[in-house]
């Protein structure tokens, strides 16, 4: 019953007097939340407007000297091939967000669907799906990633696939638990008594009650995905050169760290900033919508 209560409290918070206004007011009380929101907005805006911001073609070799320190022309210096690091970092943000949104978007959809099926379906299907979720979850992500890359080859698609598959069970479990709690609630039975189909009950009455907590979880997973993508690219299993990518920049910089530290700094800072931004924002959202939902679910 605790879940139902939690959902109900979350629902109340959301619906009290002018949703957006009260939401912003609550967010305003949390300085870290504001910082997170600013960072996230800045990050997304930069990624969207990237072609307007960059000063050089990010993939063009020898636009300047090799491994140059920052200057007015090359804001973050250049890499070992003489490419402009600033432009590469800015364009790299697009890859990071693309991977995050594509993989989390698909795992959110699949997780939601499977979770609802497990929560509302027959018991044997529930047990079977739980078994599948736990099996997938017991796989170490990196090992799974290695296997997929070996199978499909290193590419953006592989990274997105790995992230999507490994996060489905987490979301599906959250949805399943809440759908299960709602299944026998009086308002769902009341709908049944009016002759509502299961599909209608799920779409109109269950979905709105599970989507909130789920979105919080997802927003907190964005930084994890971005670091994972960077990590895989660092290991050479993600994005192929010459595509600009934070992990790849880090990896390049690692090789020349004795000559210049600028590359590592340029590749590392955006990862740190994005991670912090999404984490702060996610935690603030969680505190606003659902104080009971912790990461230790």
């Amino acid at each position: 019953m605790e879940d139902v209560e939690a959902i109900r409290t979350a629902a109340q918070d959301r619906h009290d007097t002018g949703r957006l206004a009260s939401f912003l007011r609550q967010l305003g009380k949390d300085p870290l939340g504001i910082l997170g929101a600013i960072l996230v907005v800045a990050m997304v805006a930069t990624a969207l407007l990237a072609p307007l911001i960059i000063t050089h073609d990010p993939t063009r070799i020898m636009v300047g000297p090799r491994l140059a320190p920052p200057s007015l022309d090359f804001l973050m210096g250049t890499d070992q091939l003489g490419r402009d690091t600033f432009s590469r970092v800015i364009m790299g943000g697009r890859i990071a967000l693309l991977v995050a949104f594509a993989s989390l978007g698909s795992s959110l959809t699949v997780g939601l669907l499977l979770g609802l099926i497990a929560g509302f379906g027959p018991r044997w299907l529930d047990s079977f799906l739980l078994l599948v979720f736990d099996t997938v979850r017991s796989f170490p992500v990196i090992i799974f990633a290695l296997a997929i890359v070996a199978l499909l080859g290193p590419s953006l698609t592989s990274v997105i696939f790995v992230v999507a598959v490994t996060s489905v069970p987490i979301y599906a479990r959250v949805v399943r638990t809440q759908a299960h709690a709602l299944r026998n609630s009086e308002f769902v039975e009341a709908e049944r008594c009016m002759g509502a189909s299961t599909l209608r009950i799920l779409a109109v009455h269950v979905l709105p009650n599970v989507i909130g907590p789920l979105l919080i979880l997802v927003s907190m997973d964005v930084p994890l995905v971005i670091t994972l993508e960077a990590g895989l690219s660092f290991l050479g299993m993600g994005v192929r050169p010459p595509t600009p990518d934070w992990g790849a920049i880090l990896s390049d910089g690692y090789g020349y760290i004795h000559k210049t530290a600028w590359l590592v700094i340029a590749g590392g800072i955006p990862i740190v900033v994005t991670t912090l931004g999404f984490t702060f924002l996610g935690e603030a959202l969680r505190d606003i919508f659902d104080p009971k939902l912790r990461k230790d679910l």
């Binding site: 959902i7 109900r8 629902a11 619906h15 609630s185 009086e186 308002f187 769902v188 039975e189 009341a190 709908e191 008594c193 009016m194 109109v204 009455h205 709105p208 009650n209």
Partner: peptide
Amino acid sequence: AMMFQDPIGSLSPR
């Protein structure tokens, strides 16, 4: 038609 025990809990909260 049926009326349930919990007046508020039997109404879909959203």
